[in-house]
Design a protein around this nucleic acid. Sequence first.
DNA 1: GCCTTAATTGAGACATCGTCTCAATTATAC
DNA 2: GTATAATTGAGACGATGTCTCAATTAAGGC
Lengths: 142, 142
Amino acid sequence: MSQLRQEIGLSEHLSAAGYRLTAPRRAVLQVLEEARTHLHPEEVLKRARLIYPGLGRATVYRTLALLTGLGLLRPIRLGGSPRLARVTEGHHHLVCLACGHSFSFEECLEGELEEELAQRFNFKIKGHLLEFYGLCADCRGE
Amino acid sequence: MSQLRQEIGLSEHLSAAGYRLTAPRRAVLQVLEEARTHLHPEEVLKRARLIYPGLGRATVYRTLALLTGLGLLRPIRLGGSPRLARVTEGHHHLVCLACGHSFSFEECLEGELEEELAQRFNFKIKGHLLEFYGLCADCRGE
DNA sequence: GCCTTAATTGAGACATCGTCTCAATTATAC
DNA sequence: GTATAATTGAGACGATGTCTCAATTAAGGC
């Protein structure tokens, strides 16, 4: 079953784009693919070093930049802290402006808008981000 | 005419919330209100120093954090660079993942979704951010 | 398998971005 | 005007991210 569900992974995208598949890169990609939350770049480094101990910080950032340029990843901020998200990810966030806490939701309305914008701006749209900002119950003191 | 259009400014919000209206703060607020683009925090500092020369960096960041906590401002990133946007701002962006260029558009679909999420999460929603990510024509080499 | 070669790497200096402390200043209520 | 607590700037500090350069290594041709 899990075999049948196999999708094209990040590494396939990388090598398809002409980049080498090195051990350091594999470690970073594996961490990203196994991550169940939005990781902090330093957290990616920490986790990837468990797989490939000699890994350098620069390599992590370089790999992240590569994936971003290919449209596979996007840098976001959750409560002031830098994070990484797959662009294909389906969910979005409510973010509290005071405490930075975030809550996820699934709804999404951008189908036709996406089409139209892609045409208007001659843009190859890879994904999108929808975030609502406001104050959570705790921070309103309720 | 311009008198009639006068809206409640950032400074009114600040003092209504119990914060003092000092000269350094006024300078920062004025810069934000006159800005026609999404400013980089360091650019806010630079411009505000033209109004109030002695202004310190910390004061700028403190004022920005204050406004963010009140739900009047939100930090965004455009092409990896930190920027500030009024939460009430009506427009959104297409951002190129490769070169960081951004394009604005006006369409917006989140009315009812906003309502529903506010209820579900007991959240006071102040604004939202919608960004599409992809590759612009130049970066696709077309 | 073994070269060749250009892409990739890690270390660590460096740059940028943002926060904190603390003594001095100042807006506001009285 | 005075008292008082909020606010300030300077500059150290911390966090985040970039760059250089010599050493290493993946991938293609043999």
